[in-house]
Amino acid sequence: MNIFRLAGDVSHLVAIIILFLKIWKSKSCAGISGKSQVLFALVFTSRYLDLFTVFISAYNTIMKLVFLVLSYATVYLIYMRFRGSYDSENDSFRVEFLLVPVTGLAFLENYAFTPLEILWTFSIFLEAVAIMPQLFMITKTGEAESITTHYLFFLGLYRALYLANWVWRYHTEGFFDQIAVVSGVVQTIFYCDFFYLYVTRVLRGSGKMSLP
């Protein structure tokens, strides 16, 4: 555990809690892509099957369980409890365009051709693109509430901090995970455009982020 890893995990947790509390407190999931949240629940489910096979640490187990529970709770809020506020009209990204290539790639490029390893790789690839329905939705409606942009900022920051963690681990432990690093770089690139808008419009401007 290094400072980048810890900061990345905290950032990830903050993002997920921000989103959950936003929906819970406002009793509305307006502007939130349910599809992205289902994809994230799928990411955690397919990656954390190792909870059954290997024990790392109490921290590791607890964080994995918290991410799993919060992701499913968020999906529940969007599709069940506050489904009246769900904007399915604008959440129109075709997720099969992500799931089909990601599944195919996981079968082609993995560390071992075993169910758990293929699912682990699938989760890493899927995470890299899971935010696309949300970004698509913001582009379509042309705006995002500031709290939604804070969520996206922390979610993007988390993977960027993991990149620093991987550089650190490579130099201190000789640890290099090609699949995670390449996917992590791709994932972070997806957020770069958003980071720019976040700094120029949300932090310097007022409230909502509206696109030109």
């Binding site: 995990d9 190792d50 790392i56 590791n60 560390y111 993991y162 963690n165």
Partner: peptide, 10 residues
């Protein structure tokens, strides 16, 4: 690689 370190990351 079957590196158990991978499972340490979230």
């Amino acid at each position: 690689s079957q590196d158990p370190l991978r499972h340490d990351e979230l």
